[in-house]
Computed example of a mutant assay.
Amino acid sequence: MTIHSLYIYDRHCTCVYYQDWHRTNRPKVAAEGGMLPAVCATIYPTSQQPEANAGTTLTFTSPRNTLTSTTGVVVAVSDSQQQPAPLLQANPTSVGTSSSGLPFDEEAKLVYGVVISLRNMIKKLAGRDESFVNYRTSGYKLHLFETQTGYKFVMLSDPKADSMRFILRQIYVGPFLEYVVRNPLVKMDSREQGIDNEYFRASVDRLIRGLSVFQ
């Protein structure tokens, strides 16, 4: 069993964060204007890179590539956190990974559309007290956790994996609240850019890699 990817959507139906681990077909670079900056550097069009903060560069390593973010996102830390978080280690299994999938902006819209459609269908058929938490196909299992503020955490995993809803909630109450909600330099509920930053991405990666289902 394994975990494939994580999407975070805001209340405007926009994907504001993406991260993947075990994917044989990675999404292609998004179309020009198809996604917000600071969602995931590997799928952000190079020609769209912001120029306002070109002098500020944050470099971090993802499970697949070495990424360079020029979004100028800085994380506010306390005195006890003066040392930067450990950088993510490259995933050796990612060598030769195909990128023959859909452009990321199209993929993100399809994932969100499936989640909303199934959620609405369940409420109409089973009543408003019922909620959609996951569904399974022969190739993957989709898990959903929705916050009171409208953020939707969506994870794709191996179809045999148990419910990951508690993990999504753990991401929300842990790294998300710590490095995004409580960070005064992150624009929450913004239609201008995503919520990606080095500390949040590294913390999520450590949490996921520490799970027993992660291989």
Rank of each mutant, 00 (worst) to 15 (best):
F104K: 10
S131C: 04
P63H: 03
P86I: 01
N65C: 04
L67T: 02
N120I: 01
T59V: 07
T71S: 05
S117G: 11
A108F: 02
L88Y: 00
G101Q: 08
E32Y: 12
L118H: 09
T66P: 00
T42M: 13
T59N: 04
K28R: 14
F132D: 01
V39Y: 08
E32F: 11
E130I: 00
A90R: 10
A108I: 01
A90P: 00
S80F: 09
A126W: 03
Q83G: 01
P45V: 09
E107G: 02
A108K: 02
N120T: 09
S98R: 15
A38N: 13
T71K: 03
E130Q: 07
L118Y: 09
T97N: 02
Y112P: 01
E106D: 13
N91H: 12
V114H: 12
M121N: 05
L118A: 09
Q82E: 14
V75I: 09
E32D: 11
G33Y: 08
Y44E: 06
N53Q: 13
K124N: 07
S117V: 04
A108W: 02
A85P: 00
F60N: 00
K109W: 08
T68E: 06
K124T: 04
F104T: 06
C40E: 12
S62G: 05
G34R: 09
Q81A: 13
V75H: 08
T93H: 11
S69C: 15
S80H: 09
G72L: 13
Q83C: 04
K28S: 06
E107W: 11
S98V: 06
V114S: 08
D105N: 15
L88Q: 06
A41K: 07
A52W: 06
Q48Y: 08
S62E: 05
L102K: 15
P37A: 03
T68F: 03
N53I: 02
S98W: 07
G113T: 10
L87E: 10
P27W: 13
V115E: 08
T93M: 08
L110Y: 09
N53D: 11
T56F: 15
A54G: 13
L87I: 04
K123D: 02
N65L: 03
S62M: 05
C40V: 03
F60T: 00
V29F: 05
I122A: 07
S47V: 11
Y112T: 02
Y112Q: 14
G96M: 07
V95R: 11
Y112M: 15
T57D: 05
S47H: 08
S94R: 05
T42W: 08
G72Y: 15
K109H: 12
V39D: 05
Q82G: 14
S100P: 01
S99Y: 14
Y112V: 01
N120C: 06
T68R: 08
A38G: 01
A52Q: 10
Q49A: 08
S98K: 15
R64E: 10
A52R: 12
F132E: 00
L88R: 09
L58G: 03
R119W: 06
T66W: 00
T46R: 13
A108E: 02
V114F: 11
G34W: 07
A54E: 14
S99I: 04
S78H: 10
A76L: 11
Q82F: 11
Q81M: 12
L118G: 01
